[in-house]
Design a protein around this nucleic acid. Sequence first.
RNA 1: GCGCCGGUGGCUCAGCUUGGACAGAGCAGCGGCUUCCUAAGCCGCCUGUCGUGGGUUCAAAUCCCACCCGGCGCGCCA
Length: 613
Amino acid sequence: MDPRQDRAPTGDPWAELRTRVASEVASRLGALGATVRPADLEREIAAPPEGMGDLAVPLFRYAKPLRRSPQDLASLLADGFPLGRELTSAASAGGFLNLTASVPWLAEATFARVFSAGDKYGHGTAARGKVCVEHTSANPTGQLHVGRSRNSLIGDTYARVLSAAGYSVEVQFYVDDIGRQAATLVWIWSKPGAQWPASVREKSGVDPDRPRPEGMKPDEWRGKPYPSASEVVKQDPEAAREVSELTARFERGEIPPAEYRKVPKEILDGVLASLARVGVHFDEFVWESDLILDGSVRAAVDRLSRTPHAVREEGGALAFDASSYGLPKDLARVMITRSDGSDLYIARDVAYHARKLAGFDRVIDVIGEDHKMHFRSLVALLSEMGFEHRPEVMHYAFVNLPEGKMSTRAGRAVLLDDILDEARERARKEVSLRREDFAPEEVERVAESVGAGAVRFHILAIQPDKPIVFRWEEALSFTGKSGPFVQYSFARAASLLRKAAESGQGDLLAGILRGETRYLPIPDPPDPREVELLKSLSHLPALVTAVAESGSVHLLALYAHEVSERLNTFYQSVRILGGETGSLAFRLALVAAARQVLKNVLTLIGVEPLDRM
RNA sequence: GCGCCGGUGGCUCAGCUUGGACAGAGCAGCGGCUUCCUAAGCCGCCUGUCGUGGGUUCAAAUCCCACCCGGCGCGCCA
């Protein structure tokens, strides 16, 4: 009989207790004459300051209607509060009812969930709907810089969290292969070298008649002529005409998609290779030009042109008056097509979102804050077309450099590839210094992983709303609040468990991992550092739920740091193997649970858990 | 000019949604810890008018208003 089958508990260890406390308090307040909804009260339950228990019920708002002081109410409630097996004390303090959880109960509740759910600990148990997360969607015009990759990291992490919360998630990359930018690059590369404008040849340093140089990524090589070519297109009307002609021919079906997309595809592949280094992957690529070729864009424009707020401009361009959708007056005119009848980006975006809304319960876009207005317009257009649910958006602020805005054209951008390479170099030095026992391949593997972990964690640990001023030294930190610190803590736990198995505790450990933790002897009193760690471990399920709700992915990184810190403090202060026999099982369980929690949260934030580093 | 977002110790950031108990971390600085489970660690010390001013409240970093500073945006680019 698998013990996991035996009433395997799931979810948040605290959930039931909170509900019980809320209903108890509500009924007691009710007896005093107040009308209190348990659900409201449950929401109000907070965490008291350290050392004052685990759950705090604020009583201030009930004081006035009951004509008693909050302090009185708290003492009244604390007196004879039913503790059961979960609670060890109920105390009144400054208008709060503070409840302290019993450590044996919490240990049992947490361990049972961690070990029965394993890699799924913290994940939601109910299946939710289908959600589409679109992120990155960078124009295929060259290498990704760290500003752009903030989009990828936030989007990727959010997708992981939604999936953990029970959604069926599809991650999409929208490839704009037909806008002016990509078209410019397709245009320049469609010409033999002899026809390249001199300025492009010079500035890009690319000879298109030669194959891609050894060791150069395709996104770098293919992207090199972009700034200068785009300059030419801006200056020279003939060049601009050629670009328009090229896209027009493609839209008429005169150029096979595979041929037209050759260059964008190569750039995309290069970008994807870089993103893969930081653990970012996609399920689906939607090529913008397909939406044109299959008629979706035309259908969307037709539909929009027949809506009451459609406006035909003087030159013949189609616009849309969005003032009734709450857009600021001077921004309310949204342009949909050009005077020459060609459609603008938003027209194609509407077609794309129409398709997504039809196929998913939730549609989430991760886009930069510079697109806020665009998104609002998009939502207005979709509503006008009659879509009932709206796409949701996660905006993030830009990553700037100390010397100003990041700009590839101004040569002021930090490329994702470059920061990752530098991170790997530094990690390699650290690893070789510390681990002389590692084979060269392992040094390499760990260095890549630690470097990527540092970069990924650094970007992710900051609230998306906050502009980041990017500094190399900070992004490459391997200590303190960093990815490698969390990886290190995980490796340390993993190492200890290996040692435990080697030193004759294999059976004990195997039992713990099978979830046989119900009658684990708990030290009495437990060390406060054991309790702090245990409490952190118990908080993952509630956190995942909250982040799935709010999109505050940075909280996961901060949580990973908190667990690591508490694990290290605990680890440093007590002896686990070869310590007091009475506490061995409990401490091993703590380490095993911490290892599992760190693994799960690292996976959520896309940093690789390393068994050795 | 208008709109949206940010402004918390020397630096980088949590906390603000749902006001509550002394505002928390990391880095930097200073001082300790390794015959012992990975020192990428641990312990201690130092540093704060929570941009400014007003308001609401028993209670404001958190809510409201005004202003200041920074970022982003403001119809035929994406």
